[in-house]
C-alpha cells in the first residue's frame, strides 16, 4: 500500500464514529465472540434443565471448586495487571508496563495449567462414579461432562490464543515499540483479554457456583 496516497484519502474521511479502525473492528469482533459463547452457554444450560439430577451427581463427583476459585482469582488479577500495564505506558513508565505484562503472562500460564488439572480431576471423578474411563468415554454418558469439556475447552483455547498473542505483544514491548502515544497493539490485546476474563466469570458461575 502506498502510504502517501492512503494518507491523502484518510485525511479526507468523514469518520462518523471518532474511534480508530482497529478499535472499532475489535469491538465488532468481540460482539461476535459474545454471541458464540452465549449460544454455547445457553445450549448447555438448556440441556442442564433436562438433566438436573445427572448434572448434580456428575458435578459433585468431578469438580474442585477450590481450584477453580483460585483460577478465577488469578484470571481477574491478570486483567487488573493489563489495566496497570496500559496505565503505566500512558504515563511513560515503560519498565513498569513490561513488568505488568510479564505478570499477566505468568497468570495466563498458571490458569491454563490449573485448567488442565481440572480436566484430569473431572475424568478421575467420573471414573469413580462408574462412567467409562478416558476423557471422551466419560463425557459420552454425561451431559455435564460434555458441556464442561466443550465450554472450558473453547474458553481454554481462547486463553491459549491470548497467551500466544501476549508473547507477541511482549516482544514488541521489549523492542520498544510502545510509547505513551502509540500502544495500539497492547490496547487491542487488552480488550481481548478482558473479554476472555469476562467469559470465564460467567462459566465459573454456571459450571461451579449454580
Amino acid at each position: 500500500m502506498n502510504p502517501e496516497i492512503a494518507r491523502k484519502f484518510i485525511a479526507n474521511q468523514e469518520t462518523g464514529t471518532g474511534v480508530s479502525n482497529d478499535k472499532l473492528g475489535m469491538w465488532i469482533f468481540l460482539a461476535s465472540e459474545v454471541i458464540f459463547f452465549a449460544v454455547l452457554i445457553a445450549g448447555v444450560f438448556v440441556l442442564r434443565l433436562r438433566n438436573l439430577e445427572d448434572w448434580a451427581i456428575h458435578k459433585e463427583a468431578g469438580t474442585a471448586t477450590f481450584l477453580a476459585t483460585v483460577n478465577t482469582f488469578i484470571l481477574i488479577m491478570s486483567s487488573v495487571f493489563v489495566v496497570s500495564a496500559i496505565d503505566a505506558i500512558q504515563r511513560g513508565k515503560e519498565q513498569m508496563m513490561k513488568l505488568w505484562l510479564w505478570l499477566t503472562l505468568i497468570g495466563g500460564c498458571i490458569f491454563l495449567f490449573v485448567q488442565s488439572l481440572e480436566w484430569a480431576e473431572l475424568e478421575h471423578g467420573l471414573h469413580e462414579i462408574g462412567l467409562p474411563a478416558g476423557i471422551v468415554g466419560g463425557a459420552q454418558e454425561s451431559i455435564f461432562a460434555s458441556g464442561f469439556y466443550t465450554l472450558t475447552g473453547f474458553h481454554g483455547t481462547h486463553v491459549a490464543i491470548g497467551v500466544l498473542l501476549l508473547i507477541y505483544v511482549l516482544i514488541r514491548a521489549h523492542r520498544g515499540d510502545f510509547t505513551p502515544r502509540q500502544y495500539n497493539a497492547l490496547e487491542m490485546w487488552g480488550l481481548y483479554w478482558h473479554f476472555v476474563d469476562l467469559v470465564w466469570i460467567i462459566l465459573f458461575t454456571i459450571l461451579y457456583l449454580l
Binding site: 474521511q13 468523514e14 469518520t15 462518523g16 464514529t17 472499532l24 473492528g25 465488532i28
Partner: peptide, 10 residues
C-alpha cells in the same frame, strides 16, 4: 462495518 462507519469520504 468498519469501512462503512469510518472510511466514508467527505
Amino acid at each position: 462495518l468498519v469501512t462503512i462507519m469510518n472510511m466514508r469520504t467527505k
